[in-house]
Amino acid sequence: MTESLLTVEGVHAHYGHIAALKGVDLTVRRGEIVALIGANGAGKSTLLMTVCGRPRASGGRIQFDGEDITRLPTFEIVRRGIVQAPEGRRIFPRLTVLENLQVGATPAEAAHFEQDLERVYALFPVLAERRRQRGGTLSGGEQQMLAIARALMARPRLLLLDEPSLGLAPLMIQQIFRVIADINAQGMTVLLVEQNAYHALKLASRAYVLAAGKVILSGGGAELLADPQVRAAYLEGGQPTAKPVG
């Protein structure tokens, strides 16, 4: 449990001349769910993208399972076992659900395709029903499930989720978060970026709060959920904080 899977040390990233990350340190240990929360433009998504090598880190070091992956091309990083369900879902609209999953399985071995398929269908039964439908005809929630399922098909060792609750109905958000908890219970390490701080902190074993490209706070999920500073900035006025939902 304590072994570190992903280590980000002093990472900087730029879009042109604009610095998006200004020296971020972060650790994800095996089996954890780590949440990244923060306001718009804080650099949460950029950090996930930088882990995947796009944009490339302009300073600092990213280590995955003891190996330095800072300079590797994206597809090599993915083959090492870091797979992302990107922001905005980005499923392939004209391919069927099954074909989407098949593309996701590219880095994995063909031998356990069927077995992996069973596994994601068990997690998301609705995808099994819709397997012959084109991705573009799914609802937003179903597309998010497909994006997560597609990432799982690659057999990642670290799953990156970028805003999985974006634009979804509250019931759907609960369902997605329940599945994330299930996947984690089966042993998957998850790094989660969320605007929905309440759900993210409830789920996460640990969390980091990002602002203006820097980590300003970090700690256990429950600990941050109770932190007055976090409550004032990210929770109050939006999500109900007193009673648990669902």
Partner: peptide
């Protein structure tokens, strides 16, 4: 085959392809 599937995926969304480990 995987390569043909990757072509079609690339036509649909290049960024998603990168995130899934396809070498564009």
């Amino acid at each position: 085959l995987p390569v043909g599937r990757a072509w079609e995926a690339l036509r649909e969304d290049e960024i998603a392809c990168r995130a899934l480990g396809i070498n564009p």
